[in-house]
Write a protein that binds this DNA or RNA. Structure first.
Lengths: 189, 189
DNA sequence: AGATGACCGAAATGGTTTTCTGGTCATTAT
DNA sequence: ATAATGACCAGAAAACCATTTCGGTCATCT
């Protein structure tokens, strides 16, 4: 198997297990069965290697979100399912969960940057979907970027923040119902 | 002047200047012109003194929010103005701003708790106002607690988070317009 | 030409000593 | 008698420094 891929997989495994900061390049080299120097023939430094892995994480998440999209379904249902799928991915995927934890506890700057980058990828992904529905005339002609931001923040608030603050989770149906009566009702023509 | 009030004002001044952690009880005693022991005849400990001051901060903020309320205005206008006023208060009031900074940088647990408490006070204040409008039949019969949470999080996202992430501020009118077309449109009957 | 690991400086870690600070309480002042 | 005070204490935090660790390089080896 090609060395580059071995290294990526070894690094991903180590980041998942120990986080970004606690992963050493020597560790990665050992798992990948290469010399430490070899890593640097493929990746400029630890951070670049990390970013590459993070971006493949994004691709994976987008793919899962795409999988629940249904062109014949309403904007609301698609938005809801895609957002829920992405938020579940955040918690379910071990690397993603580890990074979120590391950002909260350790404040590792490289991790913070990567999470910001991921959020911005999600936002532009959502904006594309929204724009498509606007063009189809299904929803009001709004600023897709702002609406993406509103939807993501609203879902994060109810799915993630609420749980962290109150300890209990709001049933998905209740969330959908609330947004149906507020945000989505306003958007749909 | 009564010693209790002197102490509160001295402590408020010191918390504003140096934050909670960096304020020492000796410092407060000096500013208030009392012996350190005297503080403990009025307040059980540093944290209780702090909470007392934080709660008067909340009262002040509610008063400012109340001042912009207009019973004859629409729910949307009232909600918008009250929320904007409270978010401005967050940044304008030196003690409040200092606490937010300390929570972000130092993670002082006592400060975190107080900020959570303040948020919960804001939420129940908002829930009361919303419930009043529901009873008047002006807006849909929704869960006032959930809607408060949605509104607060949405405003925080656009006024505070957006600014922290992008560096620029969204014009107030643009924010109002977005919410008018989404959240509020769904709520108003 | 590509891979490697010994090597380097900078940064992190950990253990020890010193300083600081919240809270108490015997003493003092009123 | 009651209220105020500041010296005092134990535990927490800071400062210090010796030692280790780690990202990245490069001379050497395959």
């Amino acid at each position: 198997m090609d060395r580059r891929q071995e290294i990526i997989e070894a690094a991903a495994k180590s980041f998942t297990l120990f986080g970004y900061k606690a992963t050493t390049m020597e560790q990665v080299a050992k798992i990948a069965n290469v010399g430490k120097g070899t890593i640097y023939t493929f990746f400029a430094n630890k951070e670049i290697l990390f970013q590459e892995i993070a971006m493949s994480l994004v691709r994976e998440m987008k793919a899962e979100a795409d999988a629940v999209l249904d062109v014949s379904a309403s904007f609301m249902d698609n938005a809801h399912h895609a957002l829920m799928k992405m938020l579940q991915f955040r918690e379910k995927h071990l690397l993603f969960a580890k990074l979120i934890e590391e950002e909260k506890e350790l404040r590792t700057p490289a991790v913070k940057q990567v999470l910001i980058r991921i959020e911005s990828e999600i936002l532009s992904y959502m904006a594309t979907l929204i724009q498509r529905r606007i063009d189809k005339g299904e929803i009001r002609d709004c600023d897709a970027e702002l609406v993406s931001y509103l939807l993501l923040k609203a879902y994060l608030a109810f799915v993630v923040d609420w749980h962290e603050l109150h300890g209990d989770m709001i049933p998905e149906e209740k969330i959908l119902n609330l947004f149906k009566e507020t945000i989505f009702r306003g958007l749909v023509l």
